[in-house]
Write a protein that binds this DNA or RNA. Structure first.
Lengths: 168, 168
DNA sequence: CTTGGAAAGTCAACAAGGCTGACATAAAAT
DNA sequence: ATTTTATGTCAGCCTTGTTGACTTTCCAAG
């Protein structure tokens, strides 16, 4: 089942048939469902949704980020993000501090309680990824990342890579 | 950058650090955005959404499928699916035929116009996948599929594989 | 220094597309 | 004859996207 792998000297058109591409498209659809299902289950207990998860994830990832930064990363309007942030702030999971240099900006941080929920959510998601990676094996993981990165829009890839730099 | 690949004799914990897992999680997030962006752009011209796309995709894939089949594959309620189907039928993209053996069932088919939209949508999506696969290379593609499949819930994997059988 | 525009954030209202619940109908199964 | 199944519909709610209008703050050109 290692279709088209290591065909010497060429692109090996095998896996580029429309049929093979459709398989991959459906794999993305079903896999993404699995990918989001664990956090979704947890969030139900808190009356939050996927949008809250995304905000929490990226605030944890880049503490002190501004609202503007965040909405660019998430790809939503500031109004949409604002509603989510408002509830998270009201519930004491996120803290918003007025910028020192530029007082128009709000810098976002997770509170201890916010970090706790973040840990619960990301642990669930990591557990699934860990299991999938173990099942697929190291070489598959490298290929997985390669393809995902190649699927992104250039702008998204730029953001993805710049996030990576900060932590590595 | 082939992290942990072909380390002899073991699991190679390298890529299973929380940090590496988070990279993969973010890669999924950004890649899925890319994955859906082309169809989304096309659908705007028709006043349809992602829900319509999913229905069209799976009706094309399994012509004559019943409403009940479809809502199990899509993982939505019949009310939710019905709203989408109603508009697609009203607009002449989908045809609903009463079952012959079991007259309670409705079998769903794309009309010529429906097939036309399906082709437009899936061609856009395939173009992106094709480019990503070319950029990542054959071995990466095999790994990509392995990991995606391992990420699915058992039930989703079952559906995914049973769809595969029909066509291969 | 002032003034006008741009940038960051907030509030309000609307739409898509999920959901549940209740109910109707027809056909199949017991 | 009764119950179960497959489907459809109506009503109402929630999340999360959207646009439009508004305030506050900053900065730069006169």
């Amino acid at each position: 089942m290692v279709e088209g792998a290591s065909v010497p000297g060429g692109e090996s058109l095998l896996f580029l048939t429309d049929e093979q591409l459709r398989k991959a498209i459906e794999a993305m659809f079903f896999a993404y469902r699995g990918f989001t299902s664990d956090p979704d289950r947890i969030l139900e207990n808190y009356a939050y949704g996927r949008a809250h998860h995304r905000a929490i994830h990226f605030i944890h990832r880049s503490p002190g980020t501004t609202v503007n930064n965040l909405l660019h990363i998430l790809g939503v309007t500031k109004q949409s993000l604002n509603r989510v942030l408002r509830t998270l702030i009201a519930d004491g999971l996120v803290e918003s501090r007025v910028g020192e240099r530029d007082k128009r900006e709000r810098h976002l941080f997770l509170t201890d309680e916010g970090e706790k929920l973040e840990a619960e959510l990301s642990e669930a998601q990591r557990t699934r990824m860990r299991a999938a990676f173990r099942a697929a094996g190291p070489d598959s993981v490298a290929g997985f990342k390669q393809v995902l990165e190649a699927m992104m829009d250039p702008e998204q890839r730029r953001q993805y890579k710049s996030l990576m730099e900060k932590s590595t």
